[in-house]
Design a protein around this nucleic acid. Structure first.
Length: 493
RNA sequence: GGGCCGUUAGCUCAGCUGGUAGAGCAGCUGACUCUUAAUCAGCGGGUCGCAGGUUCGAAUCCUGCACGGCUCACCA
Protein backbone atom coordinates (compact mmCIF):
# COMPACT_ATOMS: atom_id res chain seq x y z
CA UNK A 1 0.00 0.00 0.00
CA UNK A 2 1.37 3.38 -0.97
CA UNK A 3 2.23 5.71 1.89
CA UNK A 4 -0.11 8.47 0.78
CA UNK A 5 -2.98 6.00 0.84
CA UNK A 6 -2.70 5.49 4.57
CA UNK A 7 -5.09 7.69 6.43
CA UNK A 8 -6.28 7.73 9.98
CA UNK A 9 -9.15 5.32 9.36
CA UNK A 10 -6.91 2.71 7.79
CA UNK A 11 -4.34 3.09 10.54
CA UNK A 12 -7.00 2.43 13.16
CA UNK A 13 -7.99 -0.76 11.42
CA UNK A 14 -4.42 -1.94 11.02
CA UNK A 15 -4.06 -1.41 14.75
CA UNK A 16 -7.16 -3.50 15.45
CA UNK A 17 -5.77 -6.19 13.21
CA UNK A 18 -2.59 -6.31 15.29
CA UNK A 19 -4.61 -6.42 18.49
CA UNK A 20 -6.63 -9.35 17.18
CA UNK A 21 -3.41 -11.24 16.43
CA UNK A 22 -2.11 -10.45 19.92
CA UNK A 23 -5.27 -12.04 21.34
CA UNK A 24 -4.62 -15.17 19.31
CA UNK A 25 -7.27 -14.40 16.66
CA UNK A 26 -6.10 -14.64 13.05
CA UNK A 27 -7.86 -11.80 11.17
CA UNK A 28 -7.46 -13.47 7.76
CA UNK A 29 -8.98 -16.91 8.00
CA UNK A 30 -9.33 -19.87 5.71
CA UNK A 31 -12.27 -22.00 4.70
CA UNK A 32 -15.62 -21.80 6.42
CA UNK A 33 -18.40 -24.09 5.26
CA UNK A 34 -21.61 -22.19 5.98
CA UNK A 35 -24.73 -24.29 5.66
CA UNK A 36 -27.10 -21.41 5.06
CA UNK A 37 -27.57 -18.20 3.16
CA UNK A 38 -29.31 -15.05 4.37
CA UNK A 39 -32.17 -14.96 1.87
CA UNK A 40 -32.83 -18.68 2.15
CA UNK A 41 -33.26 -18.32 5.92
CA UNK A 42 -35.59 -15.37 5.45
CA UNK A 43 -37.63 -17.22 2.84
CA UNK A 44 -37.86 -20.40 4.85
CA UNK A 45 -38.39 -19.00 8.34
CA UNK A 46 -39.48 -15.43 7.70
CA UNK A 47 -43.08 -16.21 8.52
CA UNK A 48 -42.56 -18.73 11.31
CA UNK A 49 -43.99 -17.45 14.58
CA UNK A 50 -41.80 -16.47 17.51
CA UNK A 51 -43.20 -19.21 19.74
CA UNK A 52 -42.67 -21.87 17.10
CA UNK A 53 -39.00 -20.86 16.79
CA UNK A 54 -38.63 -21.12 20.56
CA UNK A 55 -40.33 -24.50 20.73
CA UNK A 56 -38.33 -25.96 17.85
CA UNK A 57 -35.01 -24.13 17.70
CA UNK A 58 -33.44 -23.77 14.26
CA UNK A 59 -29.65 -23.85 14.13
CA UNK A 60 -27.87 -22.21 11.24
CA UNK A 61 -24.47 -21.05 10.03
CA UNK A 62 -23.58 -18.13 7.80
CA UNK A 63 -20.57 -16.43 6.29
CA UNK A 64 -20.60 -12.87 5.07
CA UNK A 65 -19.75 -9.23 5.44
CA UNK A 66 -20.88 -7.03 8.30
CA UNK A 67 -22.68 -4.10 6.68
CA UNK A 68 -24.16 -2.34 9.72
CA UNK A 69 -23.75 -2.53 13.47
CA UNK A 70 -25.51 -1.28 16.60
CA UNK A 71 -23.45 -1.89 19.71
CA UNK A 72 -24.86 -1.85 23.23
CA UNK A 73 -21.79 -2.72 25.21
CA UNK A 74 -22.82 -6.15 26.43
CA UNK A 75 -24.83 -6.93 23.33
CA UNK A 76 -24.86 -5.86 19.71
CA UNK A 77 -26.95 -6.13 16.58
CA UNK A 78 -25.52 -6.21 13.10
CA UNK A 79 -26.58 -7.06 9.58
CA UNK A 80 -24.51 -9.58 7.73
CA UNK A 81 -24.59 -9.75 3.95
CA UNK A 82 -23.81 -12.75 1.80
CA UNK A 83 -24.28 -13.35 -1.91
CA UNK A 84 -28.04 -13.78 -1.48
CA UNK A 85 -28.85 -10.80 0.73
CA UNK A 86 -28.67 -9.72 4.33
CA UNK A 87 -29.99 -10.86 7.68
CA UNK A 88 -29.75 -9.45 11.18
CA UNK A 89 -27.49 -11.13 13.74
CA UNK A 90 -27.43 -10.66 17.50
CA UNK A 91 -24.31 -10.93 19.64
CA UNK A 92 -24.91 -11.52 23.33
CA UNK A 93 -21.38 -11.02 24.44
CA UNK A 94 -21.42 -13.07 27.66
CA UNK A 95 -22.46 -16.07 25.55
CA UNK A 96 -19.32 -15.83 23.46
CA UNK A 97 -16.68 -16.24 26.15
CA UNK A 98 -13.22 -15.30 25.01
CA UNK A 99 -14.50 -14.67 21.48
CA UNK A 100 -16.05 -11.45 22.72
CA UNK A 101 -12.88 -9.80 21.51
CA UNK A 102 -13.98 -10.49 17.94
CA UNK A 103 -17.16 -8.52 18.38
CA UNK A 104 -15.25 -5.76 20.14
CA UNK A 105 -12.85 -5.38 17.23
CA UNK A 106 -15.46 -5.88 14.55
CA UNK A 107 -15.78 -3.15 11.92
CA UNK A 108 -18.34 -2.62 9.24
CA UNK A 109 -16.89 -4.34 6.18
CA UNK A 110 -15.30 -7.26 8.04
CA UNK A 111 -16.15 -10.78 6.95
CA UNK A 112 -16.99 -13.37 9.58
CA UNK A 113 -18.35 -16.86 9.82
CA UNK A 114 -20.89 -17.64 12.50
CA UNK A 115 -23.13 -20.29 13.99
CA UNK A 116 -26.31 -19.59 15.92
CA UNK A 117 -30.01 -20.10 16.19
CA UNK A 118 -32.95 -18.21 14.80
CA UNK A 119 -35.25 -16.06 16.91
CA UNK A 120 -37.50 -13.08 16.51
CA UNK A 121 -36.76 -9.71 18.06
CA UNK A 122 -39.30 -7.52 19.81
CA UNK A 123 -39.85 -5.79 16.51
CA UNK A 124 -40.41 -9.21 14.94
CA UNK A 125 -37.32 -9.29 12.74
CA UNK A 126 -35.95 -12.76 12.07
CA UNK A 127 -32.47 -12.71 13.60
CA UNK A 128 -29.60 -15.10 14.26
CA UNK A 129 -28.48 -15.29 17.87
CA UNK A 130 -24.78 -15.99 17.51
CA UNK A 131 -23.22 -18.62 19.73
CA UNK A 132 -19.95 -19.07 17.86
CA UNK A 133 -18.06 -16.98 15.38
CA UNK A 134 -14.78 -16.87 13.53
CA UNK A 135 -12.94 -14.00 11.94
CA UNK A 136 -12.52 -14.55 8.20
CA UNK A 137 -11.36 -11.22 6.79
CA UNK A 138 -10.42 -7.91 8.36
CA UNK A 139 -11.43 -4.99 6.16
CA UNK A 140 -9.02 -2.07 6.21
CA UNK A 141 -11.08 0.47 4.30
CA UNK A 142 -14.35 1.86 5.52
CA UNK A 143 -17.36 1.31 3.32
CA UNK A 144 -19.52 4.13 1.96
CA UNK A 145 -22.18 5.54 4.20
CA UNK A 146 -25.15 3.35 5.04
CA UNK A 147 -27.86 5.84 4.11
CA UNK A 148 -26.73 7.56 0.90
CA UNK A 149 -24.45 4.73 -0.17
CA UNK A 150 -21.98 5.12 -3.02
CA UNK A 151 -23.27 7.53 -5.65
CA UNK A 152 -20.19 8.87 -7.37
CA UNK A 153 -20.37 7.32 -10.81
CA UNK A 154 -16.65 7.40 -11.43
CA UNK A 155 -15.93 5.56 -8.18
CA UNK A 156 -18.72 3.08 -8.90
CA UNK A 157 -17.08 2.11 -12.21
CA UNK A 158 -13.47 2.31 -11.09
CA UNK A 159 -14.05 0.45 -7.85
CA UNK A 160 -16.86 -1.80 -8.98
CA UNK A 161 -16.14 -4.09 -6.03
CA UNK A 162 -17.37 -1.36 -3.70
CA UNK A 163 -20.38 -0.68 -5.91
CA UNK A 164 -21.26 -4.37 -5.74
CA UNK A 165 -20.90 -4.48 -1.95
CA UNK A 166 -23.16 -1.54 -1.25
CA UNK A 167 -25.61 -1.47 -4.16
CA UNK A 168 -27.60 -4.71 -4.25
CA UNK A 169 -29.41 -3.74 -7.45
CA UNK A 170 -26.06 -3.59 -9.25
CA UNK A 171 -25.28 -7.10 -8.09
CA UNK A 172 -28.72 -8.09 -9.33
CA UNK A 173 -28.14 -6.60 -12.79
CA UNK A 174 -25.11 -8.79 -13.38
CA UNK A 175 -26.91 -11.87 -12.11
CA UNK A 176 -29.56 -11.09 -14.72
CA UNK A 177 -26.91 -10.68 -17.39
CA UNK A 178 -25.68 -14.16 -16.58
CA UNK A 179 -29.21 -15.57 -16.76
CA UNK A 180 -29.81 -13.85 -20.11
CA UNK A 181 -26.65 -15.29 -21.59
CA UNK A 182 -27.47 -18.74 -20.31
CA UNK A 183 -30.99 -18.48 -21.79
CA UNK A 184 -29.49 -17.58 -25.16
CA UNK A 185 -27.13 -20.54 -25.08
CA UNK A 186 -29.90 -22.90 -23.98
CA UNK A 187 -32.16 -21.69 -26.76
CA UNK A 188 -29.56 -22.05 -29.49
CA UNK A 189 -28.48 -25.44 -28.26
CA UNK A 190 -32.10 -26.60 -28.21
CA UNK A 191 -32.18 -25.65 -31.91
CA UNK A 192 -29.16 -27.77 -32.75
CA UNK A 193 -26.46 -25.09 -32.71
CA UNK A 194 -22.99 -25.76 -31.37
CA UNK A 195 -20.87 -23.12 -29.68
CA UNK A 196 -17.47 -22.54 -31.25
CA UNK A 197 -14.45 -20.37 -30.56
CA UNK A 198 -12.70 -18.58 -33.39
CA UNK A 199 -9.65 -16.32 -33.18
CA UNK A 200 -9.76 -13.07 -31.26
CA UNK A 201 -6.49 -12.04 -32.92
CA UNK A 202 -6.84 -11.62 -36.66
CA UNK A 203 -4.13 -11.08 -39.22
CA UNK A 204 -6.84 -9.43 -41.32
CA UNK A 205 -9.71 -7.84 -39.40
CA UNK A 206 -13.03 -8.48 -41.10
CA UNK A 207 -16.75 -9.05 -40.83
CA UNK A 208 -17.77 -5.51 -39.94
CA UNK A 209 -17.22 -1.91 -40.83
CA UNK A 210 -15.14 -0.64 -37.94
CA UNK A 211 -11.65 0.43 -36.99
CA UNK A 212 -9.64 -2.29 -35.24
CA UNK A 213 -7.14 -2.32 -32.40
CA UNK A 214 -3.67 -3.28 -33.54
CA UNK A 215 -1.18 -5.36 -31.62
CA UNK A 216 2.03 -7.20 -32.36
CA UNK A 217 3.16 -10.79 -31.99
CA UNK A 218 6.85 -10.86 -31.16
CA UNK A 219 7.75 -14.44 -32.04
CA UNK A 220 5.85 -14.41 -35.34
CA UNK A 221 7.03 -10.90 -36.07
CA UNK A 222 3.63 -9.85 -37.40
CA UNK A 223 0.98 -7.30 -36.57
CA UNK A 224 -2.36 -8.70 -35.45
CA UNK A 225 -5.72 -7.06 -34.94
CA UNK A 226 -8.21 -7.70 -32.17
CA UNK A 227 -11.26 -8.95 -33.92
CA UNK A 228 -14.05 -6.59 -34.87
CA UNK A 229 -16.34 -9.54 -35.68
CA UNK A 230 -16.06 -13.34 -35.93
CA UNK A 231 -18.16 -13.47 -39.10
CA UNK A 232 -15.61 -14.57 -41.65
CA UNK A 233 -14.34 -17.41 -39.45
CA UNK A 234 -17.83 -18.64 -38.67
CA UNK A 235 -18.62 -18.81 -42.37
CA UNK A 236 -15.46 -20.83 -42.93
CA UNK A 237 -16.97 -23.30 -40.48
CA UNK A 238 -20.10 -23.58 -42.63
CA UNK A 239 -17.81 -24.39 -45.55
CA UNK A 240 -16.27 -27.02 -43.29
CA UNK A 241 -19.61 -28.72 -42.87
CA UNK A 242 -21.16 -27.43 -39.66
CA UNK A 243 -24.73 -26.36 -40.33
CA UNK A 244 -25.53 -24.44 -37.15
CA UNK A 245 -22.81 -22.62 -35.23
CA UNK A 246 -22.70 -19.74 -32.81
CA UNK A 247 -20.11 -17.78 -30.92
CA UNK A 248 -20.89 -15.59 -27.94
CA UNK A 249 -17.85 -13.58 -26.99
CA UNK A 250 -16.09 -10.26 -27.10
CA UNK A 251 -15.51 -7.99 -30.08
CA UNK A 252 -13.19 -5.00 -30.03
CA UNK A 253 -13.70 -1.79 -31.93
CA UNK A 254 -11.42 1.18 -31.82
CA UNK A 255 -14.15 3.81 -31.76
CA UNK A 256 -15.52 6.40 -29.39
CA UNK A 257 -16.89 5.56 -25.96
CA UNK A 258 -20.43 6.51 -25.01
CA UNK A 259 -23.46 5.31 -23.09
CA UNK A 260 -24.01 2.88 -25.97
CA UNK A 261 -20.41 1.98 -26.80
CA UNK A 262 -17.60 0.25 -24.97
CA UNK A 263 -14.39 -0.64 -26.85
CA UNK A 264 -14.90 -4.30 -25.97
CA UNK A 265 -18.42 -5.61 -26.02
CA UNK A 266 -20.17 -8.95 -26.18
CA UNK A 267 -21.68 -10.14 -29.39
CA UNK A 268 -23.62 -13.22 -30.31
CA UNK A 269 -23.14 -14.34 -33.89
CA UNK A 270 -24.88 -17.38 -35.26
CA UNK A 271 -25.11 -18.98 -38.69
CA UNK A 272 -27.60 -21.45 -40.04
CA UNK A 273 -27.22 -23.29 -43.31
CA UNK A 274 -30.06 -23.66 -45.83
CA UNK A 275 -32.08 -20.72 -44.43
CA UNK A 276 -32.49 -17.09 -45.40
CA UNK A 277 -33.13 -13.79 -43.68
CA UNK A 278 -36.90 -14.27 -43.65
CA UNK A 279 -36.40 -17.34 -41.53
CA UNK A 280 -34.08 -15.41 -39.25
CA UNK A 281 -36.66 -12.72 -38.51
CA UNK A 282 -39.07 -15.25 -37.05
CA UNK A 283 -36.17 -17.00 -35.36
CA UNK A 284 -35.08 -13.71 -33.77
CA UNK A 285 -38.58 -13.10 -32.45
CA UNK A 286 -38.50 -16.56 -30.95
CA UNK A 287 -35.03 -16.08 -29.46
CA UNK A 288 -35.68 -12.73 -27.84
CA UNK A 289 -39.13 -13.58 -26.51
CA UNK A 290 -37.68 -16.78 -25.07
CA UNK A 291 -34.96 -14.84 -23.29
CA UNK A 292 -37.37 -12.21 -22.01
CA UNK A 293 -39.75 -14.82 -20.63
CA UNK A 294 -36.90 -16.74 -19.00
CA UNK A 295 -35.40 -13.70 -17.35
CA UNK A 296 -38.36 -11.41 -16.66
CA UNK A 297 -41.31 -13.78 -17.05
CA UNK A 298 -43.08 -11.36 -19.39
CA UNK A 299 -42.99 -9.78 -22.85
CA UNK A 300 -44.02 -6.33 -21.65
CA UNK A 301 -40.90 -4.80 -20.24
CA UNK A 302 -40.37 -1.40 -18.65
CA UNK A 303 -37.67 0.75 -20.17
CA UNK A 304 -37.27 4.29 -18.90
CA UNK A 305 -40.64 5.99 -19.23
CA UNK A 306 -42.08 3.48 -21.67
CA UNK A 307 -43.20 -0.12 -21.86
CA UNK A 308 -41.62 -2.17 -24.62
CA UNK A 309 -43.99 -4.83 -25.91
CA UNK A 310 -42.07 -7.78 -27.32
CA UNK A 311 -45.17 -9.70 -28.37
CA UNK A 312 -44.51 -10.96 -31.91
CA UNK A 313 -44.84 -10.52 -34.79
CA UNK A 314 -42.81 -7.35 -35.09
CA UNK A 315 -43.33 -5.02 -38.05
CA UNK A 316 -41.04 -5.60 -41.03
CA UNK A 317 -40.51 -2.41 -42.98
CA UNK A 318 -38.12 -1.91 -45.83
CA UNK A 319 -35.58 0.80 -45.31
CA UNK A 320 -36.87 2.80 -48.26
CA UNK A 321 -40.47 2.47 -47.10
CA UNK A 322 -39.46 3.61 -43.61
CA UNK A 323 -37.78 6.66 -45.11
CA UNK A 324 -40.83 7.50 -47.20
CA UNK A 325 -43.06 7.20 -44.14
CA UNK A 326 -41.00 9.99 -42.63
CA UNK A 327 -41.57 12.22 -45.62
CA UNK A 328 -38.46 11.49 -47.60
CA UNK A 329 -39.29 11.76 -51.34
CA UNK A 330 -38.87 8.69 -53.48
CA UNK A 331 -36.72 10.51 -56.02
CA UNK A 332 -33.69 10.46 -53.69
CA UNK A 333 -33.37 6.73 -54.21
CA UNK A 334 -32.26 7.39 -57.77
CA UNK A 335 -28.62 8.27 -57.44
CA UNK A 336 -26.41 10.01 -54.94
CA UNK A 337 -26.84 13.52 -56.44
CA UNK A 338 -30.48 13.85 -55.52
CA UNK A 339 -29.97 12.17 -52.16
CA UNK A 340 -27.12 14.49 -51.29
CA UNK A 341 -29.11 17.55 -52.33
CA UNK A 342 -32.09 16.49 -50.25
CA UNK A 343 -29.90 15.76 -47.22
CA UNK A 344 -28.28 19.15 -47.52
CA UNK A 345 -31.64 20.90 -47.87
CA UNK A 346 -32.74 19.11 -44.68
CA UNK A 347 -29.59 19.92 -42.73
CA UNK A 348 -28.28 16.38 -42.49
CA UNK A 349 -24.50 16.23 -42.58
CA UNK A 350 -23.03 13.99 -45.25
CA UNK A 351 -19.36 13.14 -45.68
CA UNK A 352 -17.53 14.02 -48.87
CA UNK A 353 -17.71 11.23 -51.39
CA UNK A 354 -20.33 9.17 -49.56
CA UNK A 355 -22.11 6.63 -51.74
CA UNK A 356 -25.86 6.91 -52.26
CA UNK A 357 -26.38 4.01 -49.87
CA UNK A 358 -24.30 5.73 -47.23
CA UNK A 359 -26.31 8.92 -47.68
CA UNK A 360 -29.58 7.03 -47.30
CA UNK A 361 -28.18 5.44 -44.16
CA UNK A 362 -27.37 8.87 -42.73
CA UNK A 363 -30.85 10.13 -43.50
CA UNK A 364 -32.27 6.97 -41.95
CA UNK A 365 -30.28 7.45 -38.75
CA UNK A 366 -31.45 11.03 -38.52
CA UNK A 367 -35.08 10.64 -39.45
CA UNK A 368 -36.18 7.08 -38.71
CA UNK A 369 -33.99 5.51 -36.06
CA UNK A 370 -35.06 7.74 -33.15
CA UNK A 371 -38.69 6.69 -33.77
CA UNK A 372 -38.04 2.95 -33.60
CA UNK A 373 -38.92 2.46 -29.95
CA UNK A 374 -40.99 -0.73 -30.19
CA UNK A 375 -39.35 -3.76 -31.85
CA UNK A 376 -39.14 -3.22 -35.59
CA UNK A 377 -37.30 -5.00 -38.38
CA UNK A 378 -35.85 -2.65 -40.96
CA UNK A 379 -35.16 -4.73 -44.04
CA UNK A 380 -33.59 -4.59 -47.50
CA UNK A 381 -30.68 -2.21 -47.09
CA UNK A 382 -28.73 -0.73 -49.99
CA UNK A 383 -26.30 -3.38 -51.12
CA UNK A 384 -23.21 -1.17 -50.86
CA UNK A 385 -23.76 -0.96 -47.10
CA UNK A 386 -23.71 -4.74 -46.92
CA UNK A 387 -20.65 -6.15 -48.69
CA UNK A 388 -21.08 -9.63 -47.19
CA UNK A 389 -24.83 -9.96 -47.81
CA UNK A 390 -26.66 -11.59 -50.67
CA UNK A 391 -28.43 -9.35 -53.18
CA UNK A 392 -32.19 -9.49 -53.52
CA UNK A 393 -32.99 -11.47 -56.62
CA UNK A 394 -35.69 -9.01 -57.72
CA UNK A 395 -33.67 -5.89 -56.94
CA UNK A 396 -29.86 -6.13 -57.11
CA UNK A 397 -29.48 -2.66 -55.56
CA UNK A 398 -30.74 -4.05 -52.26
CA UNK A 399 -29.45 -6.72 -49.89
CA UNK A 400 -31.39 -9.47 -48.15
CA UNK A 401 -30.67 -7.92 -44.82
CA UNK A 402 -32.46 -6.76 -41.70
CA UNK A 403 -31.65 -4.82 -38.61
CA UNK A 404 -33.76 -5.14 -35.47
CA UNK A 405 -34.33 -1.89 -33.61
CA UNK A 406 -35.68 -1.59 -30.06
CA UNK A 407 -35.54 1.63 -28.01
CA UNK A 408 -33.94 3.34 -31.02
CA UNK A 409 -30.97 1.04 -30.78
CA UNK A 410 -29.81 -1.59 -33.20
CA UNK A 411 -30.10 -4.86 -31.30
CA UNK A 412 -29.50 -7.30 -34.14
CA UNK A 413 -28.15 -7.25 -37.68
CA UNK A 414 -28.61 -10.17 -40.06
CA UNK A 415 -28.62 -11.20 -43.65
CA UNK A 416 -28.78 -13.98 -46.15
CA UNK A 417 -25.12 -14.67 -46.76
CA UNK A 418 -23.39 -13.96 -50.01
CA UNK A 419 -21.97 -17.34 -51.02
CA UNK A 420 -20.84 -16.61 -54.59
CA UNK A 421 -17.02 -16.38 -54.31
CA UNK A 422 -16.60 -14.43 -57.53
CA UNK A 423 -19.07 -11.76 -56.50
CA UNK A 424 -17.65 -11.72 -52.98
CA UNK A 425 -14.18 -11.02 -54.31
CA UNK A 426 -15.55 -8.20 -56.45
CA UNK A 427 -17.39 -6.63 -53.54
CA UNK A 428 -14.35 -6.81 -51.28
CA UNK A 429 -12.26 -5.24 -54.03
CA UNK A 430 -14.72 -2.35 -54.09
CA UNK A 431 -14.20 -2.04 -50.34
CA UNK A 432 -10.45 -2.10 -50.74
CA UNK A 433 -10.78 0.78 -53.20
CA UNK A 434 -12.87 2.72 -50.69
CA UNK A 435 -10.18 2.06 -48.10
CA UNK A 436 -7.58 3.41 -50.49
CA UNK A 437 -9.76 6.50 -50.88
CA UNK A 438 -9.55 7.02 -47.11
CA UNK A 439 -12.56 5.15 -45.76
CA UNK A 440 -10.97 3.78 -42.59
CA UNK A 441 -13.88 1.51 -41.87
CA UNK A 442 -14.05 -0.19 -45.25
CA UNK A 443 -13.47 -3.93 -45.35
CA UNK A 444 -10.11 -5.53 -46.07
CA UNK A 445 -9.49 -8.17 -48.70
CA UNK A 446 -9.32 -11.59 -47.12
CA UNK A 447 -8.09 -14.00 -49.77
CA UNK A 448 -8.36 -17.03 -47.53
CA UNK A 449 -12.00 -16.25 -46.85
CA UNK A 450 -12.72 -16.04 -50.57
CA UNK A 451 -10.75 -19.25 -51.11
CA UNK A 452 -13.00 -20.94 -48.54
CA UNK A 453 -16.08 -19.76 -50.46
CA UNK A 454 -14.55 -21.19 -53.62
CA UNK A 455 -14.79 -24.64 -52.06
CA UNK A 456 -18.52 -23.96 -51.71
CA UNK A 457 -20.50 -22.64 -48.77
CA UNK A 458 -24.09 -23.77 -48.46
CA UNK A 459 -26.80 -21.12 -48.67
CA UNK A 460 -27.04 -19.70 -45.19
CA UNK A 461 -28.25 -16.87 -43.02
CA UNK A 462 -26.28 -15.24 -40.25
CA UNK A 463 -26.99 -12.80 -37.46
CA UNK A 464 -25.23 -10.72 -34.86
CA UNK A 465 -26.88 -9.67 -31.62
CA UNK A 466 -25.40 -7.01 -29.36
CA UNK A 467 -25.55 -8.75 -26.00
CA UNK A 468 -24.81 -5.72 -23.84
CA UNK A 469 -27.55 -3.75 -25.52
CA UNK A 470 -29.99 -6.60 -25.10
CA UNK A 471 -29.03 -6.73 -21.43
CA UNK A 472 -29.55 -2.96 -21.16
CA UNK A 473 -33.05 -3.43 -22.53
CA UNK A 474 -33.92 -6.30 -20.20
CA UNK A 475 -32.43 -4.66 -17.09
CA UNK A 476 -33.79 -1.17 -17.80
CA UNK A 477 -30.26 0.26 -17.89
CA UNK A 478 -29.64 3.59 -19.59
CA UNK A 479 -25.88 3.18 -19.99
CA UNK A 480 -23.84 0.29 -21.36
CA UNK A 481 -21.49 0.90 -18.42
CA UNK A 482 -24.22 -0.33 -16.13
CA UNK A 483 -24.16 -3.76 -17.78
CA UNK A 484 -20.38 -4.14 -18.14
CA UNK A 485 -18.66 -4.91 -14.85
CA UNK A 486 -15.48 -3.02 -15.63
CA UNK A 487 -16.20 -0.47 -18.35
CA UNK A 488 -13.24 1.12 -20.07
CA UNK A 489 -12.08 4.36 -18.39
CA UNK A 490 -8.95 6.41 -18.61
CA UNK A 491 -6.49 5.32 -15.94
CA UNK A 492 -6.61 7.26 -12.70
CA UNK A 493 -3.62 9.42 -12.05
C1' G B 1 -12.41 15.46 -30.95
C1' G B 2 -16.42 19.79 -29.89
C1' G B 3 -20.05 21.95 -26.28
C1' C B 4 -22.15 22.16 -21.29
C1' C B 5 -21.63 20.60 -16.17
C1' G B 6 -18.92 18.55 -12.09
C1' U B 7 -14.37 17.45 -8.71
C1' U B 8 -14.44 20.19 -0.76
C1' A B 9 -13.14 14.64 5.26
C1' G B 10 -13.61 7.33 4.14
C1' C B 11 -19.07 8.27 2.07
C1' U B 12 -23.22 11.94 0.98
C1' C B 13 -23.18 17.02 0.64
C1' A B 14 -23.20 22.69 2.43
C1' G B 15 -19.84 26.69 1.90
C1' C B 16 -23.42 33.96 -0.60
C1' U B 17 -20.89 39.57 -3.76
C1' G B 18 -12.98 36.84 -2.08
C1' G B 19 -11.64 37.35 4.71
C1' U B 20 -8.27 31.70 5.84
C1' A B 21 -13.35 25.08 6.07
C1' G B 22 -18.64 22.98 7.93
C1' A B 23 -22.78 19.17 8.68
C1' G B 24 -24.71 14.16 8.69
C1' C B 25 -23.07 9.23 8.39
C1' A B 26 -18.56 6.39 9.22
C1' G B 27 -14.31 6.58 13.02
C1' C B 28 -12.13 7.17 18.24
C1' U B 29 -13.15 7.43 24.00
C1' G B 30 -16.99 6.54 27.57
C1' A B 31 -22.29 4.86 29.00
C1' C B 32 -26.02 1.29 27.61
C1' U B 33 -28.34 -6.70 27.13
C1' C B 34 -34.18 -6.17 21.73
C1' U B 35 -31.48 -2.23 18.17
C1' U B 36 -32.40 -1.47 13.01
C1' A B 37 -30.57 5.96 9.80
C1' A B 38 -30.18 2.95 17.82
C1' U B 39 -29.50 6.76 21.70
C1' C B 40 -26.51 10.03 25.04
C1' A B 41 -21.70 12.73 26.32
C1' G B 42 -16.94 14.02 24.53
C1' C B 43 -12.96 13.89 20.60
C1' G B 44 -10.12 13.48 16.18
C1' G B 45 -10.18 13.82 10.86
C1' G B 46 -8.97 18.27 4.86
C1' U B 47 -2.33 19.71 -0.18
C1' C B 48 -10.94 22.33 -1.08
C1' G B 49 -8.64 17.54 -8.39
C1' C B 50 -3.48 19.59 -10.17
C1' A B 51 -0.45 23.86 -11.82
C1' G B 52 -0.06 28.86 -12.62
C1' G B 53 -2.19 33.97 -12.31
C1' U B 54 -4.97 38.29 -10.07
C1' U B 55 -5.18 40.07 -4.90
C1' C B 56 -2.99 42.50 1.36
C1' G B 57 -5.81 37.82 1.30
C1' A B 58 -8.44 32.50 -3.18
C1' A B 59 -12.38 26.45 -1.90
C1' U B 60 -14.56 31.09 -3.98
C1' C B 61 -12.25 35.21 -9.51
C1' C B 62 -9.06 34.14 -14.25
C1' U B 63 -6.00 30.69 -17.42
C1' G B 64 -4.16 25.95 -18.47
C1' C B 65 -4.21 20.74 -17.42
C1' A B 66 -6.25 15.96 -15.43
C1' C B 67 -10.34 12.80 -14.49
C1' G B 68 -15.60 12.04 -14.73
C1' G B 69 -20.89 12.91 -16.33
C1' C B 70 -24.30 14.44 -20.13
C1' U B 71 -24.47 15.65 -25.22
C1' C B 72 -22.88 16.07 -30.49
C1' A B 73 -19.78 13.48 -34.01
C1' C B 74 -18.45 7.95 -35.06
C1' C B 75 -20.18 3.29 -34.34
C1' A B 76 -22.95 -2.01 -32.40
Amino acid sequence: MAMEEINELIEQRIKKLAELRQSGIEPFGSSFYAEDHASELLNKFGSVAKEALEANPVSCSLAGRIISMRDFGKAAFAHIQDTTGKIQVYFKKDMLGEKQIIVKKLDIGDIIGLKGKLFRTKTDELTVEVNDLVFLTKSLRSLPEKWHGLKDIETRYRQRYVDLIVNPEVRQTFVKKSIIIKAIRDFLESKGFIEVETPMMHPIPGGATARPFKTHHNALGIDLYLRIAPELYLKRLLVGGYERVYELNRNFRNEGISTKHNPEFSMLEFYIAYRDYHFLMSFTEELITHVSKKTLGTLKIPYGDTIIDLTPPWPRISMLEALMQKGVPQEIFNGSEKARAWAKANKIEIEEGASSGKILDEIFKERVEPELIQPTFIIDHPVELSPLAKKKSDNPALAERFELFITSREIANAFSELIDPIEQRQRLLTQVEAKAQGDEEAHWMDEDFVRALEYGMPPAAGEGVGIDRLVMLLTNSQSIRDVILFPQLKPEQ
